[in-house]
Design a protein around this nucleic acid. Structure first.
Lengths: 162, 162
DNA sequence: GTAAGTGCAAAAGCTTTGCGGTGAA
DNA sequence: TTCACCGCAAAGCTTTTGCACTTAC
């Protein structure tokens, strides 16, 4: 095993510990499958990969762990809106502001953001750009308040379970 | 009915004609439900709204028409990746390049794009921004080629149906 | 008149949940 | 030893598909 891989694994082990997650072989293999992919893998794809190393793994385990990783920030997802189709009702060009906690979407008028440029040299050959969308991700007021309350409660002498 | 609404309706009728879509009452009501919402409605939500005006409407009709509208560009969706969960494997900060036809995702290193600023005055009260994601949408090389071929075929004397 | 659209219902695809057994800490 | 995790399987959503009937053009 290369030093690079050993280091990545140690890193992963440390992050699990930080997040209070058990370090299991299944989690290790799932994590490696994602990181090694250099793509934007789906749970299905990860399942196929992991099954080659752990034939007894179940699809449910993939899902549960992927969700756990997302919740704890160990992995990230491409879009915060993969659940259901959502349409634009504002037909004028605009950008979005998204709350990472409750997934609320706010519109930002296009003129509020300076045009974003991408050097042609950074573009894959033959790709033609039609549109640029900017998405600001953060926490809305009510989710911030909720989070603050929770952390205050947790810092008390008696730690409450949720 | 206000002039504004009449105008929007005429506009919609015109766009249907342009796209070769029949102008039906169902389509009109679906379209109006989306535009009037001022939100980011889901098919389920649209169904509830439309049912108040057309109790006999079916969920399938909502879906088929929403898809038709998306295909023809009459409506737009919030994200091109709502189908299935997709993970990031590139753990360094980056932006995305998305093909609107085949939905392929390419990564763009963060440094290729100048930092995007949003004036505080444009922010809803209490919202705190953690991250900015830029998504360039366009057509990849192979989808452009495919589209060109299709349009060449269609420009022949005998127009083929798909 | 004819092709496209609608309504209904079943199927397919994606994700979550519950539970008994297993393993990390 | 204990609690979180795993595997399995069923259930719950969301979306697609097929077909007979109806309607816009």
């Amino acid at each position: 095993m290369s030093d690079l891989r050993t280091q990545a694994l140690d890193d992963f082990r440390r992050r699990c510990k930080e997040q209070g997650l058990a370090f299991t072989f299944q989690r290790q293999v799932i994590y490696e499958a994602v990181v090694d992919s250099r793509e934007h893998p789906t749970p299905e794809w990860i399942y196929e990969q992991v099954r080659q190393r752990i034939p007894s793994i179940s699809f449910g385990t993939i899902y549960k762990n992927v969700k756990t990783f997302l919740d704890s920030g160990v992995l990230k997802e491409v879009t915060l809106h993969h659940g259901s189709l959502r349409l634009e009702s504002n037909m004028t060009p605009h950008h979005h502001l998204v709350c990472s906690s409750c997934k609320a979407i706010f519109d930002i008028e296009e003129s509020a953001v300076a045009p974003v440029q991408l050097p042609k040299t950074k573009l894959p050959a033959g790709f033609s750009i039609k549109q640029c969308r900017v998405e600001f991700v953060g926490l809305c007021r009510s989710c911030q308040t909720a989070r603050r309350k929770r952390s205050e409660a947790n810092s008390g002498v008696i730690r409450r379970r949720r």
